[in-house]
Amino acid sequence: MSADKTQPLWGMVIDLDRCTGCQACVVACKQENNVPFSSREEAAYGREISWIRVMAVTEGEFPKVKIRYMPLLCQQCDAPPCTRVCPTRATYKNPQGIVGQIYPRCIGCRYCANACPYQVKYFNWYNWSHFRWPAEMRESLNPDVSLRPKGVIEKCTFCHHRLQHAREQAAIEGRPVESTDFVPACVSSCPARAMVFGDLRDPESTVHKLAASPRAFRMLEDLGTEPKVVYLKEGEWNATTGG
């Protein structure tokens, strides 16, 4: 766990029994973080950028087959395999435990993307910001997040800019940041309330309680990456697809 115990340990709980696969979180994330658009061909070739994706996981065997939806985002590992291998410290874990990516520092070697077992680091194959961004959409860009240039890796930051606003507000009000001070865009948009966000270290927080639930599991947790995204699901998790 993070070294600085005075800071909240931000984490997310996703209840797969509640997720309807509506993709609202995907849209909200793209909107919030100025995630570039892609074409059908590029997406089919594995070039689309989507910091959170809803995966369809097949469960059971014919004829009792079930599709389960599973939002997959950066697991915000507490022992991230991606940060160790970065040759320029462009990706690192910050004091709040959030794994960040510093675009002007990134040289685009894609080592972190290969080292990540969850495949949640995305590369800018083109100069999207210049010739792929529809002019009508420019007005809706979020001024708190930069447009990524070509040739760098980008990833989910747990909407770190929102955390910064929350910290600033708390500092102005002269109190510490609390578990309920901010949520990432995906969580705030979930109509099924399948996603919960907060301080995993705070015993009073919802995420702390839910993470202790017998339904809780973490993706590929036997790799020792210590993810801070916790999934909830009734029954066994399918070992061949998840962990």
Binding site: Y92, N94, P95, Q96, I98, G100, I102, Y103, P104, R105, D144, V145, S146, T157, H160, H161, Q164
Partner: peptide, 8 residues
Amino acid sequence: LDCMACHR
């Protein structure tokens, strides 16, 4: 001194 405080 966190990079993300200014760069994102």
